[in-house]
């Protein structure tokens, strides 16, 4: 192994990327775990907003619909970086005011929680649109049949709408998950220590920019490829009840 690395002239690179302290590999992996935590939390939070948003847009009152329309339009036309800053400042301000009102001092928010809050609200706007489209794609008869059986709206949602829309929603949700993993990199600009910021710190303290940025790129790419594969499997599974039209997917 070492002979092979030496032959390729990669001994130095391997030392830089090694997992134990003189190398920075451990930092990168810790950053990756944090990135994935934030992305997972934000994706789940966004899905929750998305379900309520989609229901509100489809079945809500006129005012609810318009307000949700404003929410999705604004979020989708303002850069994530700007939204992250605004939501971050608003979030810390609100929290500090709340804790001051309760008689506590200033609170320090953990980077992971703040990242989930900020990216979750951004994801929510996109998830609203994805889920709205998926609910609209369910054949109407299925929902009518559910209502005819006397299902309550909640039972209808749990037993019919959500299982039936999953197949239509999965491609869009897969894209959203990929966007979430990549958007965590933006948190580096606000100073959260996730993969991109850890990478930059490692790179600037060792001056080995190419090594570390390429290594981080490989990690992100791995996440993307694995996620694409998983979502493809999930979609196949969700579509297993449908009639097969040809072999193409």
């Amino acid at each position: 192994m070492e002979a092979l690395l030496a032959a390729l002239g990669l001994t130095e690179t391997a030392a830089l990327l090694s997992l134990s302290p003189p190398g920075w590999g451990g930092n990168l992996l810790r950053g990756l775990v944090k990135s994935l935590q934030i992305a997972g939390g934000a994706f789940a939070f966004g899905l929750l907003i998305g379900i309520f948003g989609a229901y509100g847009k489809l079945y809500g009152s006129l005012v609810t619909r318009d307000l949700l329309g404003i929410y999705t339009t604004v979020i989708r036309s303002v850069p994530e970086l700007v939204l992250i800053l605004i939501l971050f400042f608003v979030g810390t301000d609100l929290l500090n005011q709340a804790s001051a009102a309760l008689g506590y001092g200033r609170v320090e928010i953990s980077g992971v929680v703040a990242g989930i809050w900020v990216l979750g609200i951004v994801q929510g706007a996109y998830a609203t649109e994805v889920l709205r489209g998926a609910i609209l794609a369910i054949p109407k008869g299925q929902l009518e049949a559910g209502r005819a059986f006397g299902m309550s709206p909640f039972t209808l949602m749990r037993r019919i709408t959500i299982p039936a829309m999953t197949a239509y929603a999965l491609p869009g949700l897969g894209n959203l998950w990929l966007i979430a993993t990549k958007d965590t990199a933006l948190l580096a600009v606000v100073g959260f220590s996730e993969l991109t910021l850890e990478t930059r710190q490692a790179a600037s303290s060792t001056r080995a920019y190419f090594t570390f940025f390429l290594a981080a790129g490989a990690l992100y790419l791995m996440v993307t490829l694995v996620s694409t594969f998983v979502f493809r499997r999930l979609e196949k599974r969700a579509r297993r009840g449908e009639a097969q039209a040809g072999s193409g997917g």
Binding site: K182, D183, L186, R200, S204, Y209, A216, G217, Y220
Partner: peptide, 23 residues
Amino acid sequence: CTVIRGTPLLLQIWLLYFGLGSL
């Protein structure tokens, strides 16, 4: 397409600027 779409743009910008810029 896969590589560029699979990695964050911020990382690509930094790779070009700091990486090539130092090279």
